[in-house]
Amino acid sequence: MNRRIYILEDDPDIGHILHYFLTEEGFEVELFSSVDKCQHALNKKLPDLCLFDIMLPDGDGITICNHLKEENNEVPVILMSAGEKPSSVYQNSHADIFISKPFDLDFLLSNINKLIAEAA
């Protein structure tokens, strides 16, 4: 059974790269460009892991991360951003991991695999 990852990313280029890369690595990936669409999907079915951008046009990844963690703390969440400091993200969110953009895809993959293994 493939592990399901929800990606919330408003930049179409980054979203496409992440979707393609993680699909090629064997994950079932759903890509969302808005907080509203992602929240709707989370209300229907929880993934094995979430990868949320922080700065979004209709909200922010920290808020949706914290809401998800209050509802179900077992779903690992990785937050990513080019404009946030790690200390601020960890202080204001319940994210499992924060990754600064730009990031290495192999580094991202190793963190995804680690979190999914820990949650299993």
Score class of each variant (00 low, 15 high):
41 A>V: 09
63 T>K: 11
84 E>L: 08
103 F>V: 08
116 I>W: 05
101 K>R: 13
41 A>F: 02
102 P>C: 06
58 D>H: 04
110 S>N: 13
102 P>V: 09
42 L>P: 11
62 I>S: 08
113 N>L: 14
88 S>M: 15
68 L>Q: 03
32 F>W: 05
82 A>R: 08
97 I>E: 04
99 I>Q: 00
46 L>C: 03
99 I>T: 01
1 M>S: 14
8 L>D: 03
35 V>N: 09
3 R>K: 15
42 L>A: 10
29 V>K: 06
22 L>N: 01
2 N>F: 13
86 P>Q: 11
18 L>W: 00
113 N>V: 10
34 S>Y: 06
7 I>E: 10
114 K>S: 08
46 L>F: 04
49 L>E: 09
26 G>V: 08
102 P>H: 01
115 L>S: 05
118 E>Y: 11
30 E>I: 04
93 S>L: 10
50 C>V: 00
106 D>F: 15
5 I>F: 07
69 K>F: 11
2 N>Q: 15
55 M>Y: 05
5 I>N: 00
10 D>I: 10
93 S>D: 06
103 F>L: 11
101 K>F: 11
96 D>P: 05
110 S>W: 07
57 P>N: 14
14 I>E: 08
24 E>V: 12
81 S>K: 01
17 I>D: 10
30 E>G: 10
9 E>P: 05
17 I>C: 12
66 N>M: 04
86 P>K: 14
23 T>M: 01
28 E>P: 12
53 D>K: 04
16 H>L: 07
105 L>F: 04
21 F>M: 08
113 N>F: 07
64 I>A: 05
42 L>W: 06
57 P>Q: 12
80 M>W: 00
38 C>P: 08
47 P>S: 08
3 R>Q: 14
7 I>V: 13
103 F>K: 12
102 P>I: 03
25 E>F: 09
67 H>I: 15
2 N>E: 13
107 F>P: 02
75 V>A: 01
73 N>P: 13
79 L>F: 03
74 E>V: 06
41 A>I: 04
58 D>K: 07
40 H>W: 13
48 D>L: 04
12 P>W: 02
100 S>R: 15
116 I>T: 12
70 E>A: 15
72 N>P: 02
39 Q>L: 12
16 H>I: 06
77 V>F: 07
104 D>P: 04
102 P>Q: 08
74 E>P: 02
114 K>R: 14
120 A>R: 10
75 V>M: 02
99 I>N: 01
86 P>A: 11
56 L>Y: 03
116 I>A: 13
65 C>A: 06
8 L>I: 01
89 V>Q: 14
47 P>R: 02
11 D>H: 07
8 L>G: 05
36 D>A: 15
85 K>Q: 14
113 N>H: 15
120 A>Y: 15
18 L>K: 00
115 L>Q: 03
65 C>Y: 05
22 L>T: 14
1 M>R: 13
14 I>C: 05
11 D>I: 10
33 S>E: 14
92 N>Q: 11
119 A>P: 09
113 N>I: 09
99 I>E: 00
66 N>Q: 09
73 N>Y: 15
37 K>G: 14
43 N>A: 10
37 K>N: 13
2 N>Y: 14
84 E>V: 12
59 G>Q: 00
117 A>M: 12
90 Y>Q: 04
109 L>T: 09
